[in-house]
């Protein structure tokens, strides 16, 4: 769907949704798989893929994706390729809103390719997740400021997750490739790629081990020897949350290193 912008350009507003439910034989069915260009969903044996039906997102685009996973159902969502956020003529921000709910015993893996925010572009990814007690989640977010050799635009990521009615994670990141404070030692520390991997109830999803135990061990021994790591800027940490989840957070100079760092122990 397109709507007329104040300046005359047609802005894209599109929404897509997928709903997964568990069948009586333990398999997962998708009673709802609704696409709207440019948010096109394709079902494959491995995952539901979000394939870009158009270039962009472009500044001013407003995209919403809604994912519901029912009790005992399992769903994996991926994107076919990195998305490159490009500036519109009017300087507006492009926004992707992701709204997720997972019922008890359900599991969602949302593992998109990174968002690359081109020079002068402004893009926001706003994620809201409601997890029932006993739901499990694996959710990745990767943002790169700029294509190769380019100072990036502005990226805003917001991640709001509740578990069993309690706040589990409220996490936003706002950075800009031409802003010294963003690139400075408190935020990106000179890196152009930042990402997180959130795992909730990973043990309940069959990774094994006691809840909390594997992550506690991993937190005590992060990548690299503790003393050596302290001498250089640390680039990855495994953070056990106060609630039933683990956040892996990483910085990198390129997408490949970032992906390598965003791994569960």
């Amino acid at each position: 769907m397109t709507v007329a912008a104040p300046c005359g350009r047609n802005l894209v507003a599109a929404s897509a949704s997928v709903e997964a439910v568990a069948g009586p034989d333990g398999t997962t069915r998708l009673p709802v798989l609704a696409s709207q260009v440019p948010l096109v969903l394709r079902r494959t044996p491995d995952a539901v893929y979000l394939v870009g039906g158009a270039a962009g997102p472009l500044g001013g685009d407003s995209l919403s994706l809604s994912i519901a996973v029912g009790a005992g159902a399992r769903l994996r969502v991926r994107t076919a390729a990195a998305s490159i956020a490009l500036p519109g003529l009017d300087g507006l921000e492009s926004v992707l809103r992701l709204s997720v709910s997972v019922a008890e015993g359900g599991r969602l893996e949302y593992l998109p390719e990174p968002v690359v925010v081109a020079r002068a572009a402004r893009h926001a990814t706003l994620v809201s997740v409601t997890l029932a007690a006993g739901a499990s989640l694996l959710l990745r977010d990767e943002v790169l400021l700029g294509r190769h050799g380019e100072a990036g635009g502005s990226a805003r990521t917001e991640l709001r997750v509740t578990y069993a009615g309690r706040p589990l994670l409220r996490h936003s990141l706002a950075v800009c490739g031409t802003d010294p404070a963003s690139l400075g030692p408190a935020v990106l520390a000179g890196h152009r790629a930042a990402g997180t991997l959130l795992a909730v109830n990973e043990s309940a999803a069959g990774r094994g081990g006691e809840p909390g135990a594997p992550t506690a061990g991993a937190a005590a021994a992060p990548v690299g020897a503790p003393v050596a790591a302290a001498r250089a800027m640390p680039e990855v940490a495994v953070l056990p949350l106060a609630g039933p989840g683990v956040l892996v957070t990483a910085l990198a100079h390129d997408a490949v290193s970032l992906r390598r760092r965003l791994a569960l122990p």
């Binding site: 996490h171 030692p185 408190a186 520390a189 940490a237 957070t249 990483a250 910085l251």
Partner: peptide, 8 residues
């Protein structure tokens, strides 16, 4: 608002 480097 989070600051990845501060967390690390």
């Amino acid at each position: 608002a989070s600051a990845p480097a501060l967390d690390l």
